[in-house]
Amino acid sequence: MNSFLGKRAIASAISLVGLIILVFFLSRLTGDPTDLYLPVDASLESRERFREINGLNDPLYVQFFRYMGDLVQFDFGMSIRRAEPALDAVLSAFMWTLQLALITMSLVTVSAIVLGSLAAFHVGGFFDRIATFFSLIGASAPDFWVAIVAIVVFSVTLGWVPTSGTGTLWHWILPIGVLFIRPFGLIVQIVRGSMITALSSAYVKTARAKGVKNRPIIFVHALRNAMLPVITVIGDQAAALLNGAVVVETIFGFPGVGKLMIDSILQRDFTVVLAAIFVTAVAIFVMNILIDILYAVLDPRIRY
């Protein structure tokens, strides 16, 4: 197990370095921040000073090695835009995204597992129809559209919840509700399919011959076996949310890492872009490890 974790950590560190190199040079292609931050009629001297301060005058490779040198000491540099360390800006935004992702995925996981299992137990029954309905919406309605319609209906017309921001618990309802639909629709189908296979397996037949009641047959015998493909998809969906739900965060004015990233790209705030990519990549790496560990916990035949 430890050697497995070590190998995974090294492999991830290598890809992280690759990613940073790629993003470092690609982001420079978006243009010179000077054009964006200084007035159009700014003098050549002030432009020169701005570049000097932000280290933009050196050749690109010098900038790169300086950046990597700082990075080794966990110094991600200052944000050009915000006048605070880039990492601080990213971490505070990331905490928002993390909360949003955790709450959404917990709700998705629990409800998709229950509904998907019941749907599988009575194929074509009531629960099966609900599952199909949500899957259809999740697969066909784009989230920016759902988000806007939800604001129009629940905030503007009915006035039940605020349109944007993060002040109270009420602020969270719409973003969570909108982010919920797609992963829920997908995962409920995976659970259903996986549970249909598990429920027709030989060990479920044994359990029935033993006189085990229906509920433990579904949620003890079949479910644990059916979970492996499900947690793979849960991990995948959670990764997408950790990356920042860019569209939904923007529409709801939610100060998460997705919104920060898109803003920083538009503002050519390179240090923040890089720090954001670094933080989310580490988070996704940690989550993948957790999922691998969960595999081994769920299925004793899997050992690393």
Partner: peptide, 24 residues
């Protein structure tokens, strides 16, 4: 009938590997 199963009438099967739950 559930109460009969196992208690009064029990059953074993051909392939014990697939008929035992692998994760318990």
């Amino acid at each position: 009938r559930r109460q009969l199963n196992g208690k009064r009438i029990a059953m074993i099967f051909q392939d014990p590997l697939s008929h035992l739950n692998p994760v318990y």
